[in-house]
Amino acid sequence: MSDVVLSCKGLVKRFGGITATNNVTLELKRGARHALIGPNGAGKTTLINLLTGVLEPTEGSITLEGRDITKLAPHLRVRSGMVRTFQINQLFASMTPLETLALVVSQHRGLGASIWKRLGADAAVTQRCTELLEQFRLAEVMNQRTEHLAYGKRRLLEIAIALACEPRVLLLDEPVAGVPAGEREELLQTVAALPADVSVLLIEHDMDLVFSFANRMTVLVNGTVLTEGDPDQIANDPEVKAVYLGHGEDAHA
């Protein structure tokens, strides 16, 4: 079994005369904690949209666990084990965390969308929801409408939804974006405690999170891979400091 779970080779995405992603090659290892960093406009979200099938590449290929998924529909990529979160919450405002997770777990297990209306009717669904609520520190707010949750809790719920789909590859798109300082620590600790068997690709501007979480980093600048390495290599790379970490960011040197 290969230790590479997700890879892309020579990915190019052009929008008219603009090249948003330029010959990007990246490998995500099994169990990885891999961060994708770079300045605004570097092409990070475009790359994630290519990996998840929201966009189709102009050139290049994407492989998930040895299978070419370059042209696979987004929902089929989810079924194949690759799930993402978004910069902006994609949640049902009028539903509670318990209802939301019961719906997702039920659908993922092929039980249909109606089972969540009879919460507790399926013991396995109930058990999985309880586990997720505890793991993501949502148990105390599980019966509150999502629209009334603190923003940090909403971000936790979004990651819990992703884990409810039992991914082998999880793409986290700026999980702490917009989260107030007082709520960040809970989120950071929860992200750090994600299951070891889930390979994670993290996009994030918060360098404290990146350097505490990642064991591998890829730096993207102007749609091109500038360099890749472990956290120490990236922190001490003069080019990275010049184009990114030195621009008002904590260099972590």
Rank of each mutant, 00 (worst) to 15 (best):
L91D: 08
F86G: 02
A121T: 11
L50R: 03
A102N: 06
I88K: 09
A113F: 15
L51V: 04
M95H: 07
S61Q: 15
V78I: 14
L76P: 00
E99T: 02
A93N: 06
L51K: 03
N89E: 08
V105I: 14
M82H: 01
F86T: 02
I62E: 01
R77K: 15
T63M: 07
M82A: 10
A73T: 01
T85A: 03
K117E: 13
L111T: 05
L119C: 00
V83C: 06
V105G: 03
L51P: 01
A73P: 00
K71D: 13
V105W: 06
V105S: 04
V54D: 09
S80K: 06
E59W: 02
G112W: 13
M95L: 15
F86V: 00
V105T: 09
S80I: 01
L51D: 07
V78Y: 12
I69C: 08
L101Q: 04
T58I: 06
T58H: 10
F86L: 01
M95T: 03
Q107T: 10
P57D: 13
L51Y: 10
V105C: 04
P97D: 10
T96I: 05
P57L: 13
V105P: 00
G110H: 05
M95N: 03
L55F: 15
R118L: 14
T63A: 08
P74L: 14
Q87K: 01
L101M: 10
I62G: 06
L91E: 03
P74K: 11
S114Y: 14
G66H: 13
V78M: 05
G120R: 10
V104Q: 02
T100F: 06
F92G: 02
H75T: 03
R77I: 14
L98V: 02
R67H: 11
K71G: 08
E56A: 12
S106Q: 08
G120V: 09
S106A: 14
K117L: 14
A123Y: 09
A113K: 08
H108V: 01
Q87E: 05
F86E: 01
